[in-house]
């Protein structure tokens, strides 16, 4: 347990104090993604993420375990977990598990990793902060990278760049609404590597349709 947590043992307070104390803890360990506010915490309470609570008078009353759970939710959200997955995880975890989940105060290694993430491609930033708001510049960078991938995939397959080619042939129904046509005489020679490469090309093609032709609602 870190000294930050040790100091909070025995802590008690109302919901505003819970938010303030947890925010301060998250700031010290530098895991924060957006403002932690009353509405968000009430949502977590309704979902059962913070465990059971008691009332003192009209006010909800919280303790050390609530701080731990609230901080753990924010850490796991920063990892890209959904609230449903976090709820399942917390249900299976004891207090000491949740304590050990919370990071130590920021290290030199974490600072380096932050710098690497900033210096890397837009993809890397998107992965780690997948649900953070995306700026117009980031959207442009992402679309540009996807477009590059589309062209590379097309070139590797020996196809003209630009738009997905169409042939009328054997139909493979991946889903009722998603079907693929393949030249029948190519099927016997297809390898697993070919299949993987085709998969990338399909992803890139669909992405092109979504991002460039306005099919998205």
């Amino acid at each position: 347990m870190t000294s930050d947590l040790a100091r909070l043992k025995g802590w008690e307070g109302g919901i505003d104090a819970l938010i303030a104390t947890t925010t301060a803890l998250l700031t010290r360990i530098e895991v924060e993604r957006g403002e932690l506010n009353l509405r968000t915490v009430r949502d977590y309470l309704q979902r059962g993420l913070l465990g059971s609570t008691e009332r003192r008078g009209k006010e909800l009353h919280f303790g050390y375990e609530h701080i731990l759970r609230l901080a753990a939710v924010r850490v796991l959200l920063a990892d890209g977990w959904s609230l449903a997955k976090i709820a399942e995880f917390l249900r299976l975890s004891g207090l000491s598990d949740i304590e050990s989940l919370l990071p130590s105060p920021k290290s030199d290694a974490l600072a380096k990793l932050d710098r690497m993430r900033r210096e890397s491609s837009p993809h890397a930033r998107d992965v780690v902060a997948s649900s953070a708001p995306v700026s117009a510049a980031q959207r442009v960078a992402r679309a540009s990278a996807l477009n590059l991938e589309l062209r590379e995939a097309m070139r590797r397959l020996g196809l003209p760049e630009g738009a997905p080619p169409v042939e009328d042939l054997t139909l493979v129904a991946i889903a009722p609404w998603f079907q693929i046509l393949i030249q029948r005489d190519r099927l016997p020679d297809l390898t697993l590597e070919d299949a993987e490469e085709l998969g990338r090309a399909v992803t890139a093609s669909l992405t092109h349709l979504i991002t460039r032709t306005g099919y998205r609602k």
Binding site: D79, P103, S104, S107, A109, L110, L113, A124
Partner: peptide, 22 residues
């Protein structure tokens, strides 16, 4: 799943380790 974001995987693994570095 799909393609191979190898550096992203390494980076996230390293971040997990770095959070608890001793």
């Amino acid at each position: 799943g799909g393609t191979t974001a190898l550096h992203d995987g390494w980076h996230l693994g390293a971040t997990q380790v770095a959070r608890h570095l001793k």
